[in-house]
Amino acid sequence: MEETVTSPPACVFCEILAGRAPATVVAEWPEALAIVPLGPVVDGHVLVIPRVHVEDAATNPAVTAITFGFAARYAREQRRPFNLITSAGPEATQSVTHLHAHYLPRAAGDGLVLPWGDNTRHVTGAEQPAEGSALPRAPASRTGRG
């Protein structure tokens, strides 16, 4: 019996970069592209993707640094408070296996809860957990996208 070899599914970001898939481009640089995601979680949500295929932030730190440099440049031009976020692996909410930085402009009361829950709580010296115990956590939200 002859074995059939199948190719892995095409990377949607590589398809966008090659011009074979549509995207709303908001900024371009020689090494990266900024696009509007299909399901923005806040108005102004943008993804900054490198023009080379890199699986995640740990795969090629040099490309990660360049990509985040362009994301920071884009953020500076927007003149708004923001988060820059990346994920590595499905357990960390990465849904597209191509490095990408989420630029998320923020506003008071925008309702966006990041994947790790209530990030407004800070542990003070009096609240420090005993060595070896877990930090107190708010319930995790599933509203983030990677």
Rank of each mutant, 00 (worst) to 15 (best):
P81S: 09
D43Y: 00
E55D: 14
A88N: 15
A130C: 02
V52Y: 02
A62T: 14
G125Q: 08
V63Y: 03
L84M: 11
G111K: 02
T86G: 00
E28F: 06
R142Q: 15
E55R: 15
A134M: 13
V12F: 03
A107N: 03
M1P: 11
P139R: 11
H122G: 04
R76Q: 11
E2A: 09
N60T: 13
N60S: 13
G132A: 04
G132E: 13
A140G: 05
G144T: 05
C11E: 06
L114A: 07
V113R: 05
A27Y: 09
F70N: 04
P81I: 03
P50K: 03
P22Q: 12
T6L: 14
A92R: 07
P8A: 06
A101Y: 02
V63C: 02
P90H: 09
P61D: 13
R20M: 09
T64F: 15
V41E: 01
A72W: 03
G69Q: 09
V52D: 04
R73V: 07
A71W: 02
P8V: 07
G117Y: 12
Y74E: 08
T4C: 00
P37C: 08
D56I: 04
R106E: 08
S141C: 05
G146R: 03
D56V: 06
P50V: 08
D56S: 08
L84K: 10
S141D: 12
N60A: 12
L47K: 03
V42N: 00
S141H: 12
P90R: 14
G44A: 08
L17K: 07
P105N: 04
G117Q: 09
L112Y: 02
E28N: 06
P22R: 10
E31A: 10
E131L: 09
V96H: 10
G144R: 00
M1E: 14
A10P: 09
P22M: 03
I49N: 01
R137L: 09
A58R: 13
I66M: 05
P8N: 04
P22K: 09
A58W: 13
E91W: 00
V48N: 04
G144I: 04
A101M: 10
N83L: 10
A21N: 07
V113A: 01
L38G: 10
H102D: 10
R106D: 05
T64Y: 13
E31C: 01
C14I: 09
V41D: 00
H100F: 06
F13H: 13
G89C: 11
V41A: 10
R79C: 02
T124W: 05
C11L: 08
Y74D: 05
A27G: 07
P139C: 03
A32T: 15
Q94A: 05
E31V: 02
P139N: 07
L114E: 07
V26K: 04
V123S: 01
A72K: 11
A140Y: 12
A62P: 01
W116N: 13
E91D: 15
H98K: 08
R137D: 06
R137P: 02
P37T: 12
P8D: 07
P9K: 11
D118L: 01
P61G: 03
G125I: 11
T143G: 06
I16V: 15
V25I: 15
A138H: 14
L38Y: 11
T124A: 08
A75N: 02
S133Q: 14
Q78F: 09
M1Q: 09
E77T: 15
F82N: 02
E127N: 06
W29T: 07
H53S: 08
T124F: 03
F13W: 12
R79N: 11
P40S: 05
L33A: 00
R106C: 04
